[in-house]
């Protein structure tokens, strides 16, 4: 029997297993265990959550492999880690330590201001951020097996996550009503590969799993993103920068499952303690925004 590993079907397949779930940022093994116990479907191992990366400034790079390995040892759920945009050697290192998914992330300082990683060259799957359908399909064209809308990481302000999800899903809705002869022009307008535009129209959805990210801080935020039509959510700073991480994490997990049930959403939203303080994106200087990173 021929066993084939690293195929696009198995890369995309793991993302399909994460659907309807919450992927949580964790900075050590202890937090990873809290996330798993709360029902996270995967964790993102990183040295600093986005809110701290913002506060600290400087260059943000891939995390120490030893710290990532400790998190991989601590939990049975999949572990993801971030590399810089275009930094294919950081990606090679993450693949070498056996990470389950790589996030080529705008949260870290980009290593290449023109190109992303050619992700087809790897056996490990990648997730990438996007703000619209064109950006999403360019990443899929490079080999991304999962997409997340970017939002504005580390702010606790959901407004950008909503903007990006509405844009991507709106672009898809427009596409599904187009005549076939209009697709090439739409591909040109979006800057997206024509074949993927055609495939997206046929499927009536993104060809890979699409999560929301960047600014989700409450169960209501998570359910909002789900009702808008994403497949699951990433929560970065929102959990471990809040007053009671274990309780908030479990509440967000429940909110993603029962996203259409307002009675349950009300129940899980009670007495969660202090949310992360947050930063209002509309009052943030342009230079501090990171969603624009990505080409």
């Amino acid at each position: 029997m021929e066993q084939q590993t690293g195929t696009f079907a198995v890369k995309k397949g793991l993302a399909q297993m994460l659907k309807g779930g919450v992927i949580m940022d964790v900075v050590n093994a202890e937090q990873a265990k809290i996330a798993e116990e709360a029902g996270a479907c995967a964790v993102m191992a990183l040295e600093r959550v986005p809110a701290d990366i913002r506060a600290d400034g400087g260059v943000a790079r891939m995390s120490d492999p030893d710290m990532i390995l400790k998190i991989m040892d601590a939990v049975t759920i999949p572990v993801m880690a971030k590399c810089r945009i275009g930094h294919f050697v950081e990606a090679q290192i993450l693949e070498a330590i056996g990470i389950d998914y790589i996030d080529e992330s705008e949260v870290l300082t980009p290593a290449d201001e023109a190109n992303h990683i050619l992700k087809h060259n790897f056996k490990v799957p990648f997730v990438c951020g996007c703000r619209n359908l064109g950006e999403a399909l360019r990443r899929v064209g490079e080999g991304a097996a999962m997409i997340r809308t970017k939002g504005e990481a580390g702010t606790g302000d959901v407004v950008e996550a909503v903007r990006h999800a509405r844009t991507v899903l709106g672009d898809i809705r427009r596409l599904t009503t187009m005549a076939d002869e209009e697709l090439m022009s739409y591909a040109k307008e979006l800057g997206a590969p024509y074949e993927l535009i055609k495939e997206t129209k046929e499927l009536g959805r993104m060809p890979v799993v699409n999560f929301a990210a960047g600014g989700v801080a409450t169960p209501a935020d998570a359910a909002l993103m789900m009702q808008l039509g994403v497949d699951g959510v990433f929560v970065g700073s929102g959990i471990f920068k809040s007053g009671d991480p274990a309780k908030r994490a479990a509440a967000i997990v429940k909110a993603v499952t029962h996203y259409q049930d307002a009675t349950i959403l009300a129940e899980v939203s009670k007495n969660l303690g202090e949310p992360m303080v947050g930063r209002n994106v509309s009052q943030m200087p342009e230079g501090e925004k990171i969603a624009g990173r990505g080409w």
């Binding site: 029997m1 590993t5 195929t7 198995v10 490990v124």
Partner: peptide, 16 residues
């Protein structure tokens, strides 16, 4: 036995 074949890099397709 959970994750018996290994991590994601060991995920595979095969004919049965």
């Amino acid at each position: 036995e959970r994750n018996a074949f290994g991590r994601q890099l060991d995920s595979f397709e095969a004919d049965l």
